[in-house]
């Protein structure tokens, strides 16, 4: 694949269809700049700021844009609220739709056949693969991203974090907790 991609890149360069600096910038952007830390800031703010939280659930796209995250693969962002009675999980059974602007590029497992096939039929089994067990009576709500809406799960705020700053809270927000295959870390997990 290394040879094939290099060959195609050479052809596209020689034809003037691509500019090398743009290629480098695209890679750098998604490898270094855009990642789950963006989403963690959104969640931490929703935990401490009731007005922002309300806005986030009413108009996710605008609320997230106010923090500087917008555009590609988050033009229509919907935030999903985890509660003691409902746990949300996000999947794209047809391809790999994922809210790039807030979570970066998806991990390999999210794009894999096991995750895409099983999440809609056996979400508790998938959660078990991640070591997560939820109460038997909790509703598991799976969102299959079949259109251009992109979903961001807002996990429940862990106990024992009263008075924490947004920055410190963001350290508790894992990528998986914003997809719904995990929960936010508790303070003792940070040690």
């Amino acid at each position: 694949m290394q040879l094939r991609t290099r060959a195609l890149e050479t052809i596209l360069l020689e034809k003037g269809y691509i500019e090398p600096a743009a290629i480098d910038l695209l890679i750098e952007t998604y490898e270094k700049k855009i990642g789950p830390r963006n989403g963690a800031q959104v969640v931490a703010k929703a935990w401490v700021d009731p007005k922002f939280r309300q806005w986030l659930f009413a108009d996710g796209t605008a609320a997230v844009e106010s923090l500087g995250f917008s555009g590609r693969s988050a033009n229509h962002l919907v935030a999903l609220e985890n509660t003691p009675s409902v746990h949300n999980m996000v999947v794209c059974t047809l391809c790999s739709c994922y809210p790039w602007a807030v979570l970066g590029l998806p991990p390999l497992w999210y794009k894999s056949a096991p995750y895409r096939s099983r999440t809609v039929a056996d979400p508790r089994g998938v959660l078990a693969d991640f070591g997560v067990e939820l109460p038997k009576d909790m509703e598991i709500r799976v969102w299959d991203s079949t259109a251009e809406l992109r979903y961001l799960v807002v996990p429940m705020r862990p106990a024992g974090t009263e008075g924490w700053s947004e920055d410190n809270l963001a350290d508790l927000v894992t990528r998986d907790s914003m997809i719904g295959t995990g929960l936010a870390k508790s303070p003792k997990d940070l040690k």
Binding site: L94, P107, L108, P114, R116, S117, R118, A121, D129
Partner: peptide, 13 residues
């Protein structure tokens, strides 16, 4: 892929 069987567990890295 939704609902297909046989792909095995999800393996996070």
């Amino acid at each position: 892929l939704g609902g297909m069987h046989g792909f095995g567990p999800v393996v996070p890295e």
